[in-house]
Nucleic acid binder design. Structure first.
Lengths: 211, 211
DNA sequence: TACGAATTGGGCCGCACGACCTATGTAGCC
DNA sequence: GGCTACATAGGTCGTGCGGCCCAATTCGTA
């Protein structure tokens, strides 16, 4: 029997974190830490050096994809399995580019979670990730190479918070015209045609938070 | 030692359902069934007659609040604890009116879940529910007495799915004008000023699903 | 039977929004 | 020194959108 796999759980919902922890402990994993936001995940990843990190995409402060990017930057051998609500192609592609080793939709079974974590350790990649990598290689779905900038995220978040264009401009100390320009850029990147679709897509992708 | 509390879990995310089941079993509860959508929850509630139902607000087919309404209609003594992502006043109020015995945000601890289920059995109500009932009684936040109609939900869902006004009209075989009228009514009820805010609020309330 | 709510529809008005084009300053990078 | 990306800002144009009037039909129900 080898040493138990050391896990770090990162999810902003305490209920899932705690129930998942109990189940993983049951399965013989060693849960060494828990993070409730992206920044905490980055910090704990460095401090605890876990074997695998189970990380939700949608988190406060820093989203899971960005947190993955920062962790992999510091430690290229880090194994990170992403969790998400929706099976969004763009998110999967972004997660892979950020350096994730696996990808799980929250609708999967617990057995799949355990299996994917073990695969992450052994170096294998999940079917979903492999399929996406294949698609990436073929260049079929690489339009996801449209990275939303920090400023664009700020605009999206303010709109999700209920601001109209003039209010977004006021909050960010820029002109309404600039806000519109950012929006136009966002529409192109997220394949949306109006602010409603853009915000919804951003929510799906975990870029923006719903309070 | 009394008989274990018989539980029915209703949540569309298999991961949470399974991990929660494991944890509840650990705690001595008897999980007699699992439902992945609102209709299944209603059916299983009648079939299994569980002591307590732990039900997510956001579910396919029928949302948790409506499912609660139907279950309570058939069995007024049913104990239902609602689960949700966001602590939305309107949702809490709607859940209470539907007949829920308790209310939990998914950011709570597992101990709180277990405690609330036990309280639901003993007839006590959680602090959150009590506070909301107080507010209801005072008539402070009873603007939630604005029930979204079926037709309005259809309009909201189509907009969330990416339709603009003309497309919604086409899908529902009605004029654009009628769609606008429904939207105006929705804005008043959800305290929104445009379709973006209306859809986001609907997502928060679990009225509309994000695919 | 009569009332209210839901659903349907019309017209008008003003403005916000999105499409398209151009332009400047400021970074970072090879 | 150039190249690219980002953030900033302007203009114009058409139409989608929301506010505010009103009215007809159907339906459950008091």
């Amino acid at each position: 029997m080898t040493d138990p796999i050391r896990l770090l759980l990162a999810d902003d919902h305490r209920m899932l974190r705690e129930t998942l922890k109990r189940s993983m402990l049951d399965e013989g994993f060693d849960v060494v830490g828990e993070a409730s936001d992206g920044q905490e995940a980055v910090d704990l990843a460095e401090e605890l050096q876990p074997d695998v990190i189970l990380m939700d995409v949608t988190m406060p402060e820093i989203d899971g994809v960005e947190a993955t990017r920062r962790i992999v930057e510091q430690r290229p051998d880090a194994r990170i399995v992403m969790l998400t609500m929706h099976a969004d192609q763009d998110v999967i592609a972004a997660a892979i580019r950020a350096g994730a080793s696996g990808y799980l939709v929250k609708d999967c079974s617990f057995d799949e979670v355990a299996a994917t974590v073990r695969e992450a350790i052994s170096g294998e990649v999940s079917q979903q990730v492999a399929a996406s990598m294949l698609r990436e290689a073929k260049g079929l779905a690489d339009d996801a190479e449209s990275v939303i900038t920090k400023r664009e995220i700020e605009v999206l978040q303010l709109i999700a918070d209920g601001c109209a264009t003039p209010e977004v401009a006021e909050q960010l100390f820029i002109s309404q015209k600039t806000v519109k320009n950012h929006l136009a850029s966002i529409y192109a990147k997220l394949d949306a045609r109006d602010r409603t679709q853009a915000v919804l897509q951003a929510v799906r992708m975990g870029i923006v938070r719903l309070y």
